[in-house]
Design a binder for these strands. Sequence first.
DNA 1: TACCAACGTTAAGCAATGGTTAAATCCGCA
DNA 2: TGCGGATTTAACCATTGCTTAACGTTGGTA
Lengths: 224, 224
Amino acid sequence: MNTNTTILFADDDPDILEMITYNLEKEGYNVVTATNGEEAVALCRKVQPELILLDVMMPKMDGVEVCETIREMDIPVQPLIAFLTSRSEDYSQIAGLSAGGDDYINKPIRPKVLLSRVEALLRRAPISKVEKSSSELKLDTDRFLLLFKGEELYLPKKEFELLAFLMKKPGIVSNRDQIMNEVWGDDTIVGERTVDVHIRKLREKIGDQYIRTVKGVGYTFVEQ
Amino acid sequence: MNTNTTILFADDDPDILEMITYNLEKEGYNVVTATNGEEAVALCRKVQPELILLDVMMPKMDGVEVCETIREMDIPVQPLIAFLTSRSEDYSQIAGLSAGGDDYINKPIRPKVLLSRVEALLRRAPISKVEKSSSELKLDTDRFLLLFKGEELYLPKKEFELLAFLMKKPGIVSNRDQIMNEVWGDDTIVGERTVDVHIRKLREKIGDQYIRTVKGVGYTFVEQ
DNA sequence: TACCAACGTTAAGCAATGGTTAAATCCGCA
DNA sequence: TGCGGATTTAACCATTGCTTAACGTTGGTA
């Protein structure tokens, strides 16, 4: 059975909450529920679920916000996140997935469909989920500071955002376009050398070993 | 770009085929198309795509049958499979996903939605991380590095892409035209000896035993 | 054996790319 | 408005990696 798998389910409708919980528990999953976004974030930190089912429209914090918050959280294993929504418009789907979501399930929810989907999501989750943050270097996005070898280092905004972006996907190579879109925004156009200069300033502060250049491709954060 | 990612797209409607192909290629994916189920299965075996987009209703063999056939195939890496359908009934979704599909996309297809979905699927795909192959030699396409006898080896872009291309179809002989089209692109024309030189540099780094020359035909990656 | 085509090898030149630096500009703030 | 740090640009430099050309080697074939 699925007794080792914890699913966090967040929805503001108690009827749906109850129905889905019943169905998931019948399959042997551990289910934890939240009725608003803030509760979902708190519970995620506490129980560290494998999968989160997020209603998009919720009080306090909507699903997309919750997703973004969780994706920036410093937790050992990032959960899978699937959105539930009755809105089927394009923009909603894109907003959800680009916020770091893994799937999108339309309301009204049919238990059997949901179970199939949950199964498919978990089946595909990477097996080796031991994601360790480098011990010497930690980013505190709330306080906007960098913990480097025990000391607190305040970085300028752009440098901080650039480092945060790279650290979000350690090991994965991001190209200049991706970096500029994410850190500067789609509408801002800056010169080719701008990124380099910020990379240089970061390397000046934290050393060369953390950011690797992949020529012709981009940059990547290297875990130590 | 996504030049290392091949997507097989199967649909019996040539208009949809063209539109989606255009959009995927714009993002840099390699797209291979089929107009019926049997063709899809044959092409899957041949090109070994990372992702297959399957129309559910097709002549000869429907999408679900294709999926089942592929999931039973003995290929080095099982592709991700997503279904496309205009039927949104429950039974169809469940049939699709329990046949071993990874996702379900409703028609009518909106290009932007599809691209988000494709991206989300590939982002999380365990198979695209470390290419399964000989124990001594592993390619990590996200990190742009080669794991060779336990050590990390950074290869220059072209060498990496060339090796990735060959390793994608171990045992299958690729001729120079195929290699140049895939690694260099259709529009770039380089001399005959260029490929040889890159092959040589690769052999210098990983030894002669992995890449075999088939005179008059091309090169092939040899599994150890 | 002599020839030819195909592939291998080498080194050199060149183009692309990123690194570096300093100066200019921007921007918030008093 | 002027200051100071942050950001961006521009110009130049260094390095890497790509390509080519010239020549060497091999293996098949008449």
